[in-house]
Design a protein around this nucleic acid. Structure first.
Lengths: 255, 255
DNA sequence: AATGCCCATTCGACATAGTCGAACGCTCTT
DNA sequence: AAGAGCGTTCGACTATGTCGAATGGGCATT
């Protein structure tokens, strides 16, 4: 695949590295992590600094992400069709279900949260728009794997991190769960990511019926699955209806 | 200044263009806007697409910002010292003043909102973290101009957009206002940006006493300035105290 | 249906532009 | 005082991205 601009690829790799690495990194660390010469790395970093994508800590000389990225990130939210069309339905779903609502889309083998509505009553929650959640331990992720072959392929040979005692950590178990999701049209997860928490998700389809994202409700496992390991059918229905409404808005036809 | 990687600069320019331009843009539009060859532009766009910084609309072929930027943007928030140190103080300021609190830092001749606490009582507000506010019509902006020479220089020869009847639109009036801000140590704005709304701000200093941002409260002009055009002294005090507390946290010494 | 225009995309040659590795100077440690 | 580690600078090389014209598909008009 010729024509890929390497300096931009490298710049993106540096930014991703800074986003993962919790905090500031030095030129040397970045250079060795990416297998680049220190001089090259420095040149790219200087350019990224000029455009505001990275900032340099005056005293330590280390680099971190820059303010310009924040504005670009929120600008993405303004343009994102999935999110803008889904906002109203998400609010309705939150008040109808009484649970927190999230909308996710695939990114880099994870689930990117593009919208988040807090649980109606409780206000001690942190906004996690922009956060990356694991594919294999969330209902959102299971939906995306079940309906997007590319996503599923990307995780086939990946390590499945264990978050709780109930996290699916073997590829076989995950594959079984995903194919059941595909059959029934919705996904469920109970205490696989956070103890005491469960979630229910359904697919959102865009133009042509293609799955472009997923919507979920998340909350106490006691409420979402009164019977152990069985999602409340009423809540499943509400989530599926919301997903279908958004899909219709996005022009998904009769799906 | 040699060593600036042009392809990265151009990529950044494209991203900025997509952020401004409300929505999707075609290769041709981007190329002419930036004075580049269409082929060159296409190559950069393809690379940006590979790394997830832009997405292409399947049907129209036009480009828009990509999901990866959202995650980078929120990652910036996690790393940002100013924001993480200020969060607790911002909450306290909101409950003490009863008004919405914002923290801003300069970016591209505007004020970038890096933190936003809603007004305690009212919940019909939209989060504007990541938004860019004008320098000349907000209290946050006046602070940044008064204490950061680079910021002030950047706007000296810029058009001053008129938002309301009271917006300062002449460079002379703005300069006078800014120098008064510098003398008194806090900034004020009443109905210069939004009718009926006013704001009060104070500078946040980082290591060495350098101003790295500003914190403000914003709300109904009736509450912030009981006497016309005069900020409530009590509220000014509360804002200044919060700003000083954050500055101390950031290691600003005795400022 | 047939035609024309507009647009994203591809291609190949040229020379610019970015990469590399060694050397510099700085701060902090030993 | 000497050393190590860091970010930074420098100059030569060639790989790399740039350009402009050509291609092909889609859409609206004719």
């Amino acid at each position: 695949m010729p024509g890929a601009v390497q300096s931009i690829e490298r710049a993106a790799a540096i930014l991703r590295l800074l986003a993962r690495g919790s905090g500031r990194l030095g030129v040397g660390e970045i250079a060795t992590s990416l297998g680049l010469a220190k001089g090259t790395t420095h040149g790219i970093l200087r350019t990224l600094q000029e455009v505001g994508f990275v900032e340099q800590d005056r005293s330590s000389g280390k680099y971190q992400l820059g303010a310009a990225l924040l504005h670009l990130g929120t600008s993405y939210l303004d343009v994102n069709d999935l999110r803008s069309r889904a906002i109203n339905w998400a609010d309705a779903l939150a008040s109808r279900s009484g649970e927190a609502v999230r909308i996710g889309t695939p990114l880099e083998g994870k689930v990117l949260v593009v919208h988040h509505v807090f649980r109606p009553d409780d206000s001690l929650q942190t906004l996690d728009v922009g956060a990356l959640l694991p594919l294999h331990a969330t209902a959102l992720g299971k939906i995306l794997m079940a309906y997007d072959a590319e996503v599923a392929a990307g995780i086939a040979d990946a390590e499945l991190e264990q978050f709780t005692r109930r996290t699916l950590t073997t590829p076989a178990a995950l594959k079984r769960a995903v194919s059941r999701v595909h059959e029934q049209g919705w996904a469920f997860e109970s205490e696989e990511f956070t103890p005491g928490q469960a979630s229910i998700a359904a697919p959102i389809r865009g133009y042509g019926g293609l799955v472009v994202g997923a919507i979920s409700i998340a909350g106490s496992a006691d409420r979402l699955c009164p019977t152990p390991d069985r999602a409340d059918p009423g809540l499943v229905d509400v989530v599926q209806n919301a997903a279908r409404a958004i899909s219709r808005d996005l022009g998904a036809g009769r799906w």
